[in-house]
Design a protein around this nucleic acid. Structure first.
Length: 110
DNA sequence: AAGTTGACTAAAT
DNA sequence: CATTTAGCCAACT
């Protein structure tokens, strides 16, 4: 059968981020088998329509929300994150240290 | 078909 | 740490 499209793999990677956890665009791209395509992840999120997609768990690599500060999306993302227990301060969260063992625990053996 | 754009990143300042 | 700079890459003009 046909292999999953890049977009499908990216969406799957996003859906795989556990509640209360966050991941960077680049991290998702990598997990989807598309290293260096962070901007593609952003693009897909922008066009996404699925209300169940945990888009709010995706942040920039430095832990900052990608929307302009104060904008609608910025506010909603902070709110959604706090709603699941993530500490958001000044539109920024503490990014999980790229811990290999924890990464494997979360993402699985791949 | 060449140039622009952007929910990005890593490195330098 | 916060800011700036240069690089990146697919979609869109």
């Amino acid at each position: 059968m046909a292999e999953a499209s890049a977009e499908e793999r990216i969406l799957a990677a996003i859906r795989a981020v556990p509640r209360g956890q966050v991941a960077a665009y680049g991290h998702i791209a990598r997990r989807a088998g598309l290293p260096g395509r962070a901007r593609l992840v952003a693009r897909i999120l922008g066009g996404n329509e699925d209300p169940d997609l945990p888009w709010h768990r995706i942040l920039r690599s430095d832990g900052r929300i990608a929307f302009p500060e104060g904008s609608r999306g910025w506010r909603e993302q902070s709110q959604r994150l706090r709603a699941e227990g993530v500490a958001v301060e000044r539109g920024r969260v503490r990014m999980p240290a790229a811990d290999v063992s924890l990464d494997a625990m979360i993402w699985g053996p791949g």
